[in-house]
Design a protein around this nucleic acid. Structure first.
Lengths: 208, 208
DNA sequence: GTCTATAAACCGATAGAC
DNA sequence: GTCTATCGGTTTATAGAC
C-alpha cells in the first residue's frame, strides 16, 4: 500500500499536468485526486513539486512511447502503422473531449525557458522518441540521416496537430497531419530505389 | 501616455505568456515589466487577468500572422516563402535562446481544457491562420479542400517543431519540419497536372 | 509512513485617498 | 487616472504528534 501511494501520486499528477499544465495544477489538487497526504508527497519526493514533475515527465513520456510503439508493431508495415498512430490520436481526442493529447507537451512549453532541470527531462523524452522512430525507419531500409529527419517531422506533425485539435475542438488537423506524415514517409520509401516496382514491393502489404 | 499604458500591458503580458505560460505569469510581474500599476490594469481590463489574456491572444496571434505573411509575400513563390518561414523561425529561436516561438501555443495548451473563453480565443487565431494559408495555396492553383489540408499540416509542422526545438534547444526539428512542409506542398503542386513540365513552370522561380 | 496544523510567501483583486 | 495599502484566498513547504 505504501508503494501504491507513490504510483497514485505520479498517475494523478500526470493526468492533471497534461490537462492543466504544471503551473496550473496545485499540489493540493494532486493529493486530493491521488487520495494522499502532504507527508506522503514529501516522503517520496523530497524535492517537492519539481521532483514529482520530473518523475511524471519521464514516466508518462515512456508510457506514451510504449503505447505508440505497440500500435506501430501491430500494423503490417511502417506506413500503415504511422497511419494508425494518427488515427488513434484522433480517436482518443474525440473520446476524451479533447483533453488527452501529448502527456508532456503543455509542461514542455511551460518549462522550456523557466526550469532547466525539467526542460532537460522533456528533452530526454523527445530525444528517446526521436531515436526510436529513427531506428524504426532505418530498419525499414531508409538511411539513418533521412530516417531521423522523417522522425522529427512526424513527431512535429503529431505535436502540432494536438495543439490545433485541442484549441479548435476538431480532429480535422490530426487527419491532415496524418496524411502529410504518410505522404512524406511514403516519398522517402519511393525514392529508396529508382525502380518503382521495388518500392511498390516494399509497401505491398500496407493498409491505407 | 494613458493609451501607452494599455499597450505596454499587452506587450509585456504577451512576452511573458509565451515564455512562462498563463498560469506561470503573475499579474505583479506583468505590471512590473510594463511599468504600470494595479489600477491601470483593472481600468483597461475590468475583467482582470482573463480579459487581458484574451486581448493578448488575439493581438499576438494577429501580429504573428502578419509577420509570417510578410515573409511569404517577400518570396518569389509559395514554396520559397514556406521555406523562408521555417528558416526564419529557426533563426529567431537561436537568436532568442529558444524563448520566442509561437506567441500563443503555450497558453493554447494551458487553456484548452480549463478556460472556455480563452480556448475560443486561441481557436479564432488558429482558424484565421488556417483560412489565410488556405487562400494563399488556393490562389496558387491548388483546390480549396487540398489547400486547407496542406495549411493544417504546415501549421502543425511549425507548431510541433517549436515544441521540439524549445525542449531540445536545437533548430534541427525546425529544419526537418521545413523540409517536410516543402515536400508535401511541392507534391500538391506536382500532382496539379499530369504534365510535369507544367508543374515545373509553376515553380520555376523558387529559391530552395 | 501517516496524520494535523501551520508557517511564509504569493495569488488575483479591490478600496479609498489623492 | 494614479498611488498605497490591504483583503481574502491559495500556494508550496515544514513541524511535530502519533
Amino acid at each position: 500500500m505504501a508503494i501504491d501511494t507513490r504510483e497514485r501520486l505520479v498517475n494523478a499528477a500526470s493526468r492533471l499536468f497534461r490537462r492543466q499544465g504544471l503551473a496550473g495544477t496545485g499540489i493540493k489538487q494532486i493529493l486530493s485526486e491521488a487520495n494522499a497526504q502532504f507527508s506522503s508527497l514529501y516522503h517520496y519526493f523530497p524535492g517537492g513539486k519539481d521532483e514529482l514533475a520530473a518523475d511524471v515527465i519521464r514516466a508518462s513520456g515512456l508510457h506514451y512511447q510504449e503505447l505508440v510503439e505497440a500500435v506501430w508493431d501491430a500494423a503490417p508495415d511502417v506506413v500503415a502503422g504511422l497511419n494508425d498512430i494518427f488515427k488513434g490520436a484522433a480517436s482518443v481526442l474525440e473520446a476524451t473531449d479533447y483533453a488527452d493529447a501529448c502527456p508532456i507537451a503543455t509542461v514542455a512549453l511551460e518549462v522550456a525557458s523557466t526550469n532547466e532541470p525539467l526542460r532537460a527531462a522533456t528533452a530526454e523524452v523527445f530525444d528517446a522518441w526521436t531515436d526510436r522512430g529513427t531506428a524504426r525507419f532505418a530498419s525499414a531500409g531508409i538511411g539513418a540521416a533521412e530516417a531521423r529527419r522523417l522522425t522529427l517531422a512526424v513527431i512535429a506533425l503529431l505535436e502540432g496537430a494536438f495543439i490545433l485539435c485541442r484549441a479548435t475542438r476538431s480532429t480535422e488537423p490530426m487527419v491532415s497531419a496524418g496524411e502529410a506524415a504518410v505522404a512524406v514517409v511514403r516519398r522517402a520509401f519511393g525514392s529508396l530505389e529508382a525502380d518503382p516496382n521495388a518500392a511498390a514491393r516494399t509497401l505491398s502489404t500496407e493498409r491505407c
